[in-house]
Structure formats: C-alpha cells, structure tokens
C-alpha cells in the first residue's frame, strides 16, 4: 500500500473520530449544566480547555457563553479543532482514497459534510441541537460499522483502526484531565451529590456510563471512574484499550520494531495507580500520556508515511 494512501486513511479515521467526539462533548455538557446548581462557576469554558484552544477562543470571542462556545466548537470552519473542520478534512482525505474505501462510505461522508454545512445556520440553538448532533454521531457510527463490515481487513484497515484509536485515546485523556481539574472543588461536603453527577457526565461524554455501571457495579466516584477510563482493557474508549488495539494493528505491519517498542512502553499504564493521585499529580500524569500519544503518532508517521 502506498504510504500516502495509508496516511490518508489514518487521518480520515482520526478526523471522523474527532468530529464524533466533539459532537458528544457538546451534547453531554448541555445536559450536565441542567443538573448542576446555578451557583457553580462551571459553564462552557472547560470544553474550550479540553480542545486546548483557549488562546484562539479568547482572540475571537469576548466570553465563554453557551452560544459562543458552541459556535466555536461546531460551526466555524476556520477553527482547526471544530466539528466542521474535522468533517471537511475527513472528506478531503476520503476523496483521495475513494478507490480504497467502500463506495457507500464516500457517499455517506460526502452527504454528512453537505448536510451539516446546510443545517448549521439553524441547527445550533438549544432546541434543535441535541437531535442534530445526535444524527452526526449516528452517521459516523454507521461509517465505522460499514468500514468494519465491508473493507478488506488488511493493511489499510489497520491504519484506519490505528487512527481511530489514537484519536479516541487522546480525547479520553483530555476529558479526564480537564474534568478532574476544573469541575468541582475536590473536598466539599455539601457538593458531594454533584460529584456523582459530574463524573456521570464525564462517563457519558465518552459514552461509557452503561459499560461502567455493568463493570463496576457501584456508585460513580472519581477514583473508580478515572481507573475505568484510563486502564480498563475492555472498554473501547479507555486509554489502555485503545493502546492494545494499536498494538494489535502494529503487530501485523512490516518494519514495526520502533513503534512496537514504544507502544510497549505506553502500555505500562496498566500497572500505574492514577486513581490514587492527587489533582496535580494526575494532571502531570495525563500530560505525559498525551505527550506519549503525540510521540506515537510521529513514530507511526516516521515508520510508514515518509
């Protein structure tokens, strides 16, 4: 397989995953805010922090109101991390590999881009947004199903899986980081009921709530939620699970010495105890995880895309 084709499959998968994650994050945050006491200074700014685009946001908008944040994260094609940008980039990548991905796949991506662009001017208000973003997520899930059931599970498909899992792991670390940092003051008795609510929403933003409940069978607490999201081997959006997926893909590829060695290093997370870490420690730890993902991305690029 041509390196460029592999690279474009990989990035198409990353952008699709990013679009889906962004949509889910916005929907979950809207729900969370409805449940929290109005006096809490939480609002919409954590979402900007999750995407790591605070500086750009402050340049373009005066305040982190719902309207501004939603517009920033969803609609603006000038903003590198927005949902619209992700769809544009996913489509541009898909266009160049139309002969590799299933034909319906291209048609869905193309329609998703066109429909989203057409709907944007009217779809971002509180009333319609939930359904609108839900349907975008649904389309991307449909694509994942289509790729899985009709693409050859060969080299190209492995690059698709690697892109998707790397992006997933990245989003999970970002959400854990920002939410454990900024949601609520850690030890405050009168807000305890809301700790439950906030971690529930964190799990929901990674569509992890049901899986969590099935597996942990206890109340939603910071410690077990962090452990679940970072270290569970079976939950598809858990950091460790994503790393295992990437390792499985790499194992089938040629010239995999360097990337395999590095993935081996990242999988040591299995034995770490992030749940016992203090706020600052956890922040530093998650920071390191993110740096590792960035390293992994460039190691994969170095090994296969140049």
């Amino acid at each position: 397989m041509l390196s460029r084709v592999a690279q474009r499959i990989y990035w198409m998968a990353r952008y699709l995953e990013r679009a889906e994650n962004t949509a889910r994050m916005v929907n979950v945050n809207a729900h969370l805010l409805l449940d929290l006491p109005k006096k809490l200074p939480i609002g919409w700014s954590p979402l900007i922090d999750i995407t790591g685009s605070g500086a750009l946001f402050r340049e373009l908008f005066a305040d982190a109101s719902e309207k501004n944040v939603v517009r920033f994260l969803i609609a603006d094609a000038r903003i590198p991390g927005s949902l619209m940008t992700s769809l544009i980039r996913a489509r541009e990548n898909a266009r160049t590999i139309r002969d590799i991905i299933p034909r319906e796949g291209w048609e869905i991506i193309n329609a998703l881009y066109l429909d989203t662009k057409a709907a944007l001017p009217t779809a971002l208000g509180q009333k319609r947004r939930f359904v609108f973003l839900g349907s975008i997520m649904g389309k991307i899930e449909q694509l994942n199903g289509l790729f899985s059931s009709s693409m050859l599970h060969d080299v190209g498909y492995n690059f698709l899986r690697m892109g998707r899992n790397l992006e997933r792991a990245d989003m999970t670390t970002r959400i854990v980081d920002v939410r454990s940092e900024s949601l609520l003051p850690q030890e405050s008795e009168d807000l305890l009921p809301f700790e439950h609510v906030q971690w529930m929403s964190v799990l929901q933003s990674l569509s992890a709530y049901q899986s969590y409940v099935q597996k942990i069978q206890g109340p939603v607490r910071r410690r077990s939620a962090v452990r679940f999201l970072l270290q569970d081997p079976d939950f598809p959006r858990a950091f460790y699970h994503c790393v295992l997926q990437i390792r499985a893909c790499l194992r089938t590829l040629p010239n995999n010495d360097t990337p395999m060695r590095f993935v081996g290093r990242i999988s040591r997370i299995r034995r770490a105890r992030p749940d016992e870490m203090e706020k600052n420690q956890l922040h530093d730890y998650v920071d390191r995880l993110q740096l590792n993902l960035a390293r992994l991305d460039s190691i994969i690029a170095q090994a296969y895309f140049v």
């Binding site: 397989m1 041509l2 390196s3 460029r4 592999a6 080299v155 690059f159 590829l253 040629p254 010239n255 296969y304 140049v306």
Partner: peptide
C-alpha cells in the same frame, strides 16, 4: 510525492513496506 527516483535512476514508489 509518492514517487522517488533512486541513485540507480530507477523510479520507486513509497509504500508502507518501503
């Protein structure tokens, strides 16, 4: 950008195998 000409003047394409 997928193609490269080697020192042996042959044309090669860059693939994930090399």
């Amino acid at each position: 950008s997928d193609l490269v000409v080697g020192d042996d003047d042959c044309v090669y394409m860059r693939t994930v195998q090399g």
